[in-house]
Nucleic acid binder design. Sequence first.
DNA 1: ATTGATGCAAAGGCTTTGCATTGCT
DNA 2: AGCAATGCAAAGCCTTTGCATCAAT
Lengths: 168, 168
Amino acid sequence: MSSSPSESISLPPLNLPQGPEDKFREFLEIRGEKLTAPRRTLIAHIFAHHKHFDADELVSDLQTSGQRVSRATVYRTLRLLVEAGILRELRLTNRTVYEHDYGYPSHDHMHCTECGTILEFTNEEIRQLRERMASLHGFRASGHRFIITGKCGKCLRARSPRRRLDLI
Amino acid sequence: MSSSPSESISLPPLNLPQGPEDKFREFLEIRGEKLTAPRRTLIAHIFAHHKHFDADELVSDLQTSGQRVSRATVYRTLRLLVEAGILRELRLTNRTVYEHDYGYPSHDHMHCTECGTILEFTNEEIRQLRERMASLHGFRASGHRFIITGKCGKCLRARSPRRRLDLI
DNA sequence: ATTGATGCAAAGGCTTTGCATTGCT
DNA sequence: AGCAATGCAAAGCCTTTGCATCAAT
C-alpha cells in the first residue's frame, strides 16, 4: 500500500513566529476590531485540523463538536481571515474551499475531477515563471492560482483495474 | 501611447479545420441531440467577438442585438459548449466568465484585481511543468488553470502617477 | 456609554429545474 | 409520431445584509 492519503495531502508546516490567533488579533487591532469569542472558536477549530473545508462544513463541524457560531458570523469571519492572510480561498469547479495560508508554505494544487481530492505540491519554478510573465506584460503580480485538473492515481487505478491475471 | 487594450488581449486564432458550429453539431450528433436555432444564434454570437463574457452579458448582448434566447437556454447551452470543448470556463474572484477554447491557442491569464482586465499570455513551460508535476504525483493531468493576479500596467500608472514635472 | 459583534431572518445573486409547449427529423 | 429543446416561472444554492440585541471596553 502506498501512503497516499485521500482527502488532502499536507506539506510540513513552517515554524510559526506567532500563532494564527495572534496574527488575527494583530490584524483586527490595526482596524480597531476585536478578537471575540466566536472568532476565537472559529480560528481554533480551523487550525485544529489541516484540511480544505467550505463554509458549510465549518458550520456543521462546529455543531457536531457542540460549539456553535451562526452562519452569518462564519461567513463574516472567513472573509476577515482571508483578508488577514490567514486563510486562502480556493475556487474550485463546484465549490469554494479554504485552506491555511499563514504559517504554511506556499504551494499549488492538483484537483482530481473524479473524487475531488485536493493534492498540494510545491515547485519553485512556478513563482519564477509568474514573475517573469508578469514583468513581461507590465504587470505587477501579487499572487497566482495554479491548479492542475485531472485524475489522481487512485482513480486511475480504479477505472482501469489492469487485473493481475493479465500480467501472467 | 502603448497599444495595450483594455478588456481582454487576444492571441492570434488558429486555423480552424472546421468552424465552431460544425464542431458543436458533431458533438451534439454523437449524443443524439440537435443543433437548434437558439443554439446556432448563441454560437454565432459568441464567435462574432473575441472576448471574455459571462452568462448575463450574453443574455443582454443578445437582447440588444434584437435576438433573444431565454436565460435558461443560455445557461444550458453554455454548459454544453464547455463540455464540447468549445468554450472554457474561468472562475474569477467575482464572476464566472467564458472564453473561446476551440480554435484558439492554449494560454493562461493575468487578472487585474483593480480594473478586472483579463490578459492572455502563452508560455510553453507551464504545460511541461504541469506534466512533470502530475506524473511526479501519480496524477494524469487533463488541464490546468494558471491565473496570475495583480495589477496591470495601466492601473499601476494610474495609482502612482509619477508626474512629468518630477522628472525635470 | 459607546462602539462593534452576533444571530436571526430576510433578501440577493446566480444558476438550475419542473413542466407545459413548441419544434425538429 | 416521437423525442428533444425552449421558455417561463419557481425553486435552489450559497452568500450577504438589515436590524435589534448583546458584549466588551
